[in-house]
Design a protein around this nucleic acid. Structure first.
Lengths: 118, 118
DNA sequence: TGAGTAGCTCCTATATAAATGAGCCGAAAC
DNA sequence: GTTTCGGCTCATTTATATAGGAGCTACTCA
């Protein structure tokens, strides 16, 4: 639970209201989040295969990131009741695909133009 | 000082090595960092004017963000010894300007395509 | 009937980031 | 000669993010 009266919280919302870019960056900066997105894009569409693909992620974090991505409509969660055993399947949404493209641009930039000290 | 033996640290470096995008996002997610960049871009080129422009930022955070931006060569620090009183001046580097453009794209995306719950 | 798997949830411990507040150095204005 | 300002640094407190590990439900397979 977040403390709503801290300066920390106040400053974060101040920045998010100033520009939604801050809100997006705050989302993207959650560890593993972009990797989960990319992994889904590559076809790992189940909890267990994602977990396997992302080697070091822990269950609760993966569950949280999937929830976040779904809430922001970047991925779509499909619960296939019909199939037996029923299985949950995740796919990238159109918005998610667009974001992924933008991030590819950023990735290219960071590889070619950025210098990270030491 | 960072603890080099924690899983937390291990996972972060794992992700940064997997893709430098993670390194870039980690940088961008430092609070106030992009705003400092944008404010410099708009012509606020001194410590004190930045502090004024960004209302709620505290001294040590501003100092730290300026240092980070300089280390990553996104801004250039100019110490004008000649002028009296000597004054420090910050300007955006070419790389910084490129990054700023990319972020404008992301900003537009987050304003038009993203949905942030509640 | 008992074990195993998928897809989670919850509680706690640990690590890291942000904020607060005091203080410091050199120059200059009073 | 003491106060003021710019541009910081440092130590400490407070808040938040990540990780670890137990456990739960519905279902299947032996």
């Amino acid at each position: 639970m977040r403390k709503l009266t801290s300066t920390n919280y106040y400053n974060q919302t101040f920045l998010e209201e100033k520009c939604t870019l801050n809100e997006l960056i705050n989302l993207l900066s959650k560890r593993w989040l972009t990797e989960v997105m990319f992994s889904i894009e590559e076809g790992n569409n189940r909890f267990s295969t994602l977990k396997e693909d992302l080697k070091h992620i822990s269950d609760n974090i993966l569950a949280d990131r999937l929830k976040l991505l779904e809430q922001h409509k970047l991925i779509i969660r499909n619960d296939n009741f019909r199939e037996v055993p029923s299985r949950v399947e995740y796919t990238l949404s159109d918005t998610g695909a667009k974001l992924s493209e933008l991030l590819d641009g950023l990735c290219h930039f960071s590889e070619t133009e950025m210098e990270f000290p030491e």
